[in-house]
Write a protein that binds this DNA or RNA. Sequence first.
DNA 1: ATTGTATTAGCAACAGGTAATAATACTGGG
DNA 2: CCCAGTATTATTACCTGTTGCTAATACAAT
Lengths: 191, 191
Amino acid sequence: MKQAKKVRRQELLQEILQNNPFYTDEQLAAELSVSVQTIRLDRICLAIPELRERVKTMAARAQVKLKAVDSRGIVGELIDMEPGVSGISVMRVSPDMTISREGAARGHYMFAQANTLALAIIDAPAALTGVANIKYLKPAYSEERLVAKARVIRQRGNKYFIWVKIRNDKYEVFRAKFIVLSLVGGEGNAK
Amino acid sequence: MKQAKKVRRQELLQEILQNNPFYTDEQLAAELSVSVQTIRLDRICLAIPELRERVKTMAARAQVKLKAVDSRGIVGELIDMEPGVSGISVMRVSPDMTISREGAARGHYMFAQANTLALAIIDAPAALTGVANIKYLKPAYSEERLVAKARVIRQRGNKYFIWVKIRNDKYEVFRAKFIVLSLVGGEGNAK
DNA sequence: ATTGTATTAGCAACAGGTAATAATACTGGG
DNA sequence: CCCAGTATTATTACCTGTTGCTAATACAAT
């Protein structure tokens, strides 16, 4: 019965820290109405670091995560590119792209990869997508590596017609046709 | 001349902390080859808090920011919804969505808003986009409020045909037609 | 040389801990 | 009922990165 109480308290402790990771040992002790030392022992046997360490790792992890989110602007990694002709990019499907844990990736990520690649291969300082035709062939799941291949199939004036196909290691997953407008000296209107 | 050196050092200090916010006063002192006390005085007159405070606020800010990023998964804010029939969502174009400062928003954000809304109005636990036809009518710029309106125009079995139109305060900016598959008891294959 | 600002030094104290050691409290088994 | 063993609490010394205060220099211009 004494064991049970201890285990229960440690569960509670973890839960509390989940929600308020900024609590000091003192506050935790008050919350659970035990002594500070008990909290310390619990922390040790649960391998929970002290407040300052927790905060530090949170801040550090958040920094890299925010950077990752920032660089998500360029969706996927450009592997190969022949400006105005073709390009290849790779994107890894991360769990937070999926619709629910272990579910399929939300479609707009594949769209974003394809669209970004299509815009990248246009050899112009600025370009805008005009029209797109998209077909999702198979769902893509977490941790898969998606390879997008783009090719300019026609160019008429400042309009580029681009095909993009995305494959995982087995199937073709996604297919899109974009009409992209390069805005070299234009007035920035994708009419 | 002495003033100038002080001012210069304080600028440097701010710059260093920008890049490595985890430096202690001691490390900063070494970096700038002055005494720790000088660093402290500089910090006071620049109103820079101590390391621990900096880290704490970073962690705290990162928490809310990461939550915001998380909820970006649901792109845009759902304003009104009649499941299986129609829906409206609003999204604010933030500067980091644009192709370059003050440029047009990257197309996949509008696509994401539209796609998310289309999936939201399907009254099913899981749904996948099958096919989409997209047309970008006008570019959307930073700080604009985009209103997306979606309507189911036909339903055949588990296939929903959905129109989505996005407007800023003046024009229609984007238009898309989606074919979405609801996966109620299905085997999760968007063939 | 004097004045004034800039810098450096030294010391006590604090928060939020670690680590170690000792003293109690509780609880179940014989 | 007592005793062993675990759980809890208390106490103490020490650590880091500071604040706050006082005092001593350094330096440049007047």
